[in-house]
């Protein structure tokens, strides 16, 4: 059974006004448990709107959403439980910090779940470790932290709810290259340890190619494709027509092949590309 399933999901902003706009158009999707899904698409392609349906923050204009087999919006009182099941980290999540200490802020979610103090304590410490925050900042005010630390604390706040699905909207945006690599690596590690489903929106093809097991491409409010990275980047021509770039390394290999070099063109990580080049050089 897929963990997330949508049937004909459609969402229209400002319905009935002159400004109405279809943000998500008739989306049918099945996401299996344990995947690490990367979501890419142009600005305004409906990515953020789509993910807000998965934890019941937005109510579909038409169509259905199923989480773990349960249909959302059928019983409104169940929504809060669904939100604990599907953790959503918004873009720039550091703007949601509000408590007087990092510890209390991370504990906000678990506390709302009504867990015992010892369980909350365990979860806060575990999720801080997961995002690489040392325990000695626990009693600090979240507003004293650096930008990267704030981001980590905010992500930890959602991780601490131990959701079955963790969705992150551009978790690395606005961070320096070192910070973004670190955060993405930690998300991947979280996925490997917990073996749960993780979805992540990103604009960087390199990040998506490096970290994910499946890619969802959104284009003009519709799902363009949902497939493995190899299959998705294989359609590089179509992606480029949509204004999305394939990873730089894929472009290099496409050009090499076009120039007559006997090489595969399904390359989307630098490591794999390096291996191919080395092999090619050895066999010469």
């Amino acid at each position: 059974m897929p963990i997330i399933k949508t049937e004909g999901l459609t969402y229209v902003y400002g319905e009935g006004t002159p400004f109405c706009k279809t943000a998500v158009d008739n989306v049918d999707l099945e996401i299996d448990e344990g995947e690490l899904v990367g979501i890419i698409g142009h600005t305004g392609s409906g990515k953020s709107t789509l993910i807000q349906h998965f934890n019941g923050l937005l109510k579909p204009t038409s169509g259905k959403v199923f989480i773990d087999g349960e249909q959302l919006w059928k019983d409104k009182s169940r929504l809060r439980d669904i939100r604990f099941k599907v953790g959503l980290v918004f873009q720039y999540p550091e703007y949601q910090l509000f408590e007087e200490s990092v510890y209390k802020d991370i504990a906000f979610g678990p506390k709302n779940m009504g867990l015992s103090d010892s369980e909350i304590d365990k979860r806060v410490r575990e999720s801080m470790r997961m995002v690489g925050l040392s325990e000695d900042i626990m009693e600090k005010s979240p507003f004293e932290l650096s930008g990267g630390q704030k981001r980590r604390a905010a992500i930890a706040g959602v991780m601490a709810m131990d959701p079955k699905v963790l969705i992150l909207d551009e978790p690395a945006s606005g961070l320096d290259p070192k910070g973004r690599d670190a955060i993405l690596a930690q998300i991947r590690e979280y996925h490997q340890q917990k073996k749960n489903t993780v979805m992540m929106v990103s604009h960087s093809m390199e990040d998506i190619a490096k970290h994910t097991t499946k890619i969802l491409v959104m284009n003009k409010a519709k799902v363009f494709c949902y497939d493995t990275p190899v299959n998705v980047f294989h359609r590089s021509k179509e992606l480029e027509q949509m204004g999305l770039a394939v990873p730089q390394i894929t472009r290099v290999f496409n050009r090499l092949k076009a120039a007559g070099v006997p090489i595969e063109d399904d390359v989307y990580t630098v490591e794999f590309g390096k291996k191919l080049i080395m092999r090619l050089l050895e066999n010469r």
């Binding site: 923050l57 906000f108 709302n112 709810m161």
Partner: peptide, 12 residues
């Protein structure tokens, strides 16, 4: 945005 983010953390 903030309301959505806190609701996602179970704020009631």
């Amino acid at each position: 945005k903030i309301m959505s983010a806190q609701k996602a953390r179970g704020a009631d």
